[in-house]
Amino acid sequence: MFEARLVQGALLKKILEAIKDLLTEASWDCAQGGIQLQAMDNSHVSLVSLTLRSDGFDKYRCDRNLTMGMNLASMTKIMKCCGNDEIITMKAQDEPDTVTFMFESKNGDKISEYEMKLMNLDQDHLGIPETDYACVIKMPSGEFARICRDLSQFGESMVIACSKNGIKFSTSGDIGTGNVKLAQTSSVDKEEEAVIIEMQEPVTLTFACKYLNNFAKATPLSPVVSLSLSPDVPLVVEYKIEDIGYVRYYLAPKIED
């Protein structure tokens, strides 16, 4: 049997908001160590990799490894029934056909239960090699979301150029061009407000704005986002999820033919 209880149920709601527009369906792989999800969008341009460690849950039990294929639109409907301050418990039998979501109010006066049918999904797991990235940027997630939103008004693609002096995001389109430069922060009171660049060599890559905007839907999960870039390899955009895990997005670059 599988059971995972999360007092901060709002986290699971935010996680779903962060992936539901990229993926129509996904497999949640549950094991003793925790829950993992890896899935590509339909066009195979981006990939979501989610890890939730068992020790981050308030209660976690997984007797046998199981894979739960879920339609994320259906899961979103169910999560909308959960209040932001409610406790979420996910439950399933071994070899399940359904998963149950139980929502409890903080004082225990109200309990709602929703059972959702599971799907058999073909799994396209990708082996992602360990990479030493040429540039790793940590920056406020809200700033990244704003830059993606602002620049995507101008064009479909965004160029991210990272050097030791800073990062430049730029775009161009029919109405003109736009760019935003961020310098590395020299001193900050709060680490989450800093722009920090770890650079081995400068990198310039081009990405589709629509995916970056989709990744930015994870902003409520973390005040900080990290961008890892190397020449001619997919970008990694990572949001840590409190003490429980992370969501990482991989995005294939646009490359010259």
Partner: peptide, 14 residues
């Protein structure tokens, strides 16, 4: 114009 690559060009299917 650069073309959009896919992840399958970079990562192996397992």
């Amino acid at each position: 114009m650069p073309a959009q690559a896919t992840l399958l060009q970079f990562f192996k299917q397992s």
